[in-house]
Design a binder for these strands. Structure first.
Lengths: 209, 209, 209, 209
DNA sequence: CATGAATGAGTGTTCATTCAT
DNA sequence: TATGAATGAACACTCATTCAT
């Protein structure tokens, strides 16, 4: 080892710069030059730590996945059943600037996956993983009597995931129409609908309506 | 007399090429050169029919919207209420190859809009328009007693649109997990849930619970 | 002759359009398409009357020369000697919008001549012709005792031509510094200097000053 | 350590190529590709040293101005009044090949400025600067009794500048007619005319008046 | 005669990538 | 390790020109 350089730390430093640039200038402007300038190193240094630009973006994506997962785990601490489920769904919506940025990045990446299929080296996909976690929580909620058993946990989870990404997409495309508040409200309604029909809350509502 | 060319037909021919290219290579690879090659004409011909690349993409999108809308109208002929609603939702899912291609185009275009902000002049957005149509049908269904009035038509429509695009996205990303059949099934369940609770089908369930 | 088309009239009509375009949009924007649009004919028609764009511009130049010459002749009518000379010099300065436009065109053309030498087919050059006319008038003025005989007519003419084009150039480059009024004034001074020293006008003026 | 390159020297090397190309092919043919070919580097290298083509041309012009100014200063060393003035005027004429090249560049650049209006950011213009220097020298000459005070220094300077650029233009357009010797001769005559009338040479005139 | 569809070379510019130092 | 000089392909776009009709 000639110089005392923490290879992994340097990589993360670069990825940090990637996120800074994307947040500030948008994904389009995240060129090698701009990223390098952000790190205060030369462009050539990037090649030492990443094979090419693709690998840089992929690593940035992977880092994002890890952070999202970590955030999710921290969030679920102490929660269970429908409460945990509700919290997790909200957590996966672009309800603040950080998550909006992540969602943009994600949508961008997905559009690439759609066209290139499985050829590009993909990190562990978010979909299957998230749908599993959601399923588990649905099952938990059903066992606790908080969630109707009319549908299987997998079906509910799949629908919730579709809502998450559907809302995410629409709010990015048309933030005026689908505001953050509206998303929270609509998700709240969906969770109302998940409850078994003989629940106290449900029947009360019906009377009101 | 110059060569006898149907201007509008030529435009559509070019736009078809645009779709083909975008579905195959992605919107980023849909360069003027590639599109021209796909049409088997020279690059210069594109400028003859469109002012610039943006206009080409925009026109392609617009034409697709028109075709989808026309298909939707034809479909709704003779239908009303929840049956029309159900048919329209299924129509907007990528359940055959043609619609899968259109969905790829849409996702690609949307990812560009997300990436570049609203700089590019956008045509009438699909979202608001479709959500209106859906809302009207929900209202119709509610008045016919086919759909629960627990939620406003707008809320139901917004959720259905999110499901449409959420399922579309996921089936493109992971066709093995979210097959076409699965989408139809999940949509069917969602429509079960829309019915008022005192419906016959629903009342049975009530007894069970 | 199949159709009754006045070839020469059509050419002039096109050249008229050239000038209109140049005056409105500048020489840079005088493309074949724009010129054709101005004539309300198709681009292809230009090729019927001119071999290529170069010939169009050259013909426009030639037309300009003719008009300038005609204007000059009309101007000199009834004048002679120093009065004619003075009038001719002023006439060749860009003192109104029309002449400013012509001067721009001229400068543009000259810069091409400078780089391409005599290869490009040139119309009868303005320089030699104008310098001859000027010389003749100087000689006339000298014979009438209006102009000092300290210098040869050719020398005076050459200097006057240099002043004309020097002022023309500077006023195009820096209209604020060298206004139209300033040009007239400076030319007036130069003509004062041309008079023999014992002229009545001269001494009178001197007394006044 | 990257390749050891003197950034400034490389810039000047490129600018030299710009002059060569413009003098040879004209400013319209001075494309990025042609300039790059002249330097024997790739086109991309130009972007390394200049932001865009406009900056290249502007820098080339600026460097030329600097060199001309430096030559002018060196020339004026030890000279004053009419002698300095005379020397400076001759210095600014294209009396050798180097200056002829510079003049070609200037005329080409100016024709571009005229053609495109003042859109392009212009460097310190030569005109005002040179006219100031000339004015100062005229004033000096007048105070020394070498130059007639019939005209203001500014008027004389403006006329001299017009003669410089008028002769420059004509000699480039028609070198056979306006030879280098002829230019020197005509300038000499102009300087004769500048002297006050009570000078020995002119004493005859004084008696007459 | 006249059209305008079609061509294709050429423009400035951007950018990921390579590599000598 | 790290630098930044250098490369060259690719981009959207402009335009004069050709030519079948």
């Amino acid at each position: 080892m000639p110089k005392d350089v923490d290879h992994e730390a340097r990589r993360e430093e670069i990825l940090e710069a990637v996120w800074t640039v994307i947040a500030r200038d948008g994904i389009e402007k995240a060129t090698v030059r701009v990223i390098a300038a952000e790190t205060n190193w030369s462009t050539g240094v990037l090649q030492h730590y990443f094979a090419d630009k693709d690998e840089i973006l992929l690593a940035a994506l992977r880092l994002m996945y890890e952070r999202i997962a970590a955030r999710g785990e921290a969030l679920l601490e102490g929660l269970s059943g429908i409460a945990a489920l509700h919290a997790l769904v909200l957590e996966n919506l672009p309800l603040d600037d950080q998550r909006e940025l992540e969602t943009k990045f994600l949508m961008n990446y997905w559009s690439r996956v759609i066209r290139e299929g499985d050829v590009a080296p993909r990190p562990e996909r978010r979909g299957p993983q998230l749908v599993d976690t959601l399923s588990d929580l649905v099952r938990e909620g059903q066992q606790a009597g908080e969630i109707s058993t009319d549908e299987t946990p997998e079906d509910v989870a799949e629908r919730l995931l579709a809502l998450i990404d559907g809302f995410s997409l629409h709010t990015l495309l048309d933030p005026q129409r689908l505001t953050r508040e509206r998303q929270v409200e609509l998700v709240g309604q969906e969770f109302e609908r998940l409850r078994p029909i003989n629940t106290t809350t449900k029947s009360k509502r019906k009377t009101n309506a």
